[in-house]
Simulated assay, not measured.
Amino acid sequence: MSFIAWIIVACEVAFWVVIILGLLARYVFKLDKAGLFLLYLTPVIDLILLIITGVDLYRGAAATTAHAVAAVYIGVSIAFGKSMIQWADVRFKHYVLKEDSLPAKRYGIDYARHYLKGWFRHVLAYLIGAGLLALLVFTIQDPARTEALVNVWRIWTVVLGIDLIITITYFIWPRQAKA
C-alpha cells in the first residue's frame, strides 16, 4: 500500500474520530463549543489530504489510483460532510443517549425526492473531485503520469450516470413499505 493510500485511510479514520469526539463533547460532556469546534475540524482533515497529495505529485510521483481517490474523497467529504455528521448525530442520540431520534423511514415519492437530493449532492461531489482531478492533470501535463487520474475520473462519470438511472427508477417504481 502506497504512502498516499495510508494517508487517505488515516484521514478517513481521523474524520470519524473527530466526529465521534465532537458528539461525545456535545452530548455526554455538555461542552457545546468544544463539540462544534471538533466537528468543524473535518474540513481541515480534507485540506491536509489535499496538501499531502499535491506535494507528492509536485515532487514528481506518478499519479496513482490513491491520488485520484484522494480527490474523490475530498469531493465526497465536502458534498456529503454535513449530512454525514447529521446522520452520525441522530444515531449517536438514539444508540448512545437512548433518545428516540431516528427519522421515520421514507417511502414512495418522498423517498424518491430524498434520493434525488442525494444525487444532486453526488453531482456536487463529482464537480469538486473531477475539478481537482482536472487541475492535477492540467498541472502535471504528462499523460503517462496522470493516466490513473483520468481512469478514475472515467469510472466516476459512469458511476454518476448509474446513480442517475437508479434515481429515476425510484420515481417510476416508488419504494414501498414492507408489509
Score class of each variant (00 low, 15 high):
Ala179Ser: 11
Val150Trp: 06
Asp56Met: 01
Ala112Glu: 11
Glu99Ala: 05
Leu39Thr: 03
Ile128Ala: 00
Asp110Ile: 14
Leu47Ser: 09
Leu160Met: 11
Arg106Ile: 05
Val69Asn: 09
Gly75Val: 00
Tyr111Thr: 09
Ala68Ser: 12
Ala70Val: 03
Val76Cys: 10
Leu41Glu: 00
Val150Ile: 13
Phe37Tyr: 14
Asp163Cys: 05
Ile19Gln: 02
Thr139Arg: 13
Phe171Leu: 05
Ile8Gly: 01
Ile8Asn: 05
Leu116Glu: 03
Tyr115Arg: 04
Trp87Lys: 09
Val55Asn: 08
Ile78Asn: 07
Lys178Met: 13
Gln86Gly: 09
Asp89Gly: 00
Gly131Glu: 10
Leu39Phe: 00
Trp173Val: 13
Gly35His: 03
Thr139Ala: 15
Leu39Gly: 01
Pro43His: 00
Ala104Cys: 08
Ile45Tyr: 08
Lys30Pro: 04
Thr169Pro: 06
Asp163Gly: 03
Tyr95Arg: 06
Ile85Glu: 01
Val158Phe: 12
Lys82Gln: 08
Ile20Leu: 15
Tyr95Asn: 09
Lys117Leu: 15
Leu164Gln: 07
Ala66Ile: 00
Lys117Arg: 15
Ile78Phe: 14
Gly22Tyr: 01
Ala14His: 04
Ala25Val: 00
Asn151Cys: 07
Val96Tyr: 02
Val96Pro: 01
Leu38Tyr: 02
Val13Asp: 06
Asp32Leu: 07
Arg59Pro: 04
Ala68Tyr: 06
Arg113Gln: 12
Ala5Leu: 12
Asp142Ala: 05
Ala5Arg: 08
Leu50Pro: 01
Ser77His: 06
Phe80Thr: 10
Val90Lys: 01
Gln176Val: 10
Ala134His: 11
Ile7Tyr: 10
Asp46Phe: 07
Ser101Val: 08
Trp6Asn: 15
Asp163Gln: 07
Leu97Gly: 09
Phe92Ala: 03
Asp163His: 07
Val69Phe: 14
Leu135Ile: 11
Gly35Tyr: 00
Thr65Lys: 07
Leu136Glu: 03
Leu127Ala: 10
Phe138Ala: 09
His114Trp: 14
Phe138Val: 07
Leu102Arg: 13
Ile109Gln: 14
Gly129Gln: 01
Leu38Phe: 04
Ile74Thr: 00
Phe138Asp: 12
Ile45Val: 15
Cys11Leu: 03
Thr157Gly: 15
Phe120Tyr: 11
Arg154Gln: 10
Val159Ile: 14
Ile48Met: 09
Ala68Pro: 02
Met84Ala: 13
Thr167Met: 10
Trp173Asn: 12
Ala25Lys: 08
Val150Pro: 09
Leu102Ile: 14
Leu21Arg: 06
Arg121Asp: 00
Leu127Trp: 04
Ala10Tyr: 00
Met1Ser: 13
Leu38Gly: 05
Gly22Ser: 04
Gly161Val: 02
Val96Asp: 01
Arg175Asn: 08
Ala130Lys: 08
Asp46Ser: 13
Pro174Val: 05
Trp16Gln: 12
Ile8His: 04
Ile172Cys: 08
Pro103Val: 02
Asp46Ile: 05
Ile172Lys: 13
Tyr73Gly: 12
Pro103Tyr: 12
Ala112Tyr: 04
Met1His: 14
Ile4Leu: 02
Asp100Arg: 10
Trp87Asn: 13
Gly60Asn: 10
Ala25Tyr: 02
His114Asp: 14
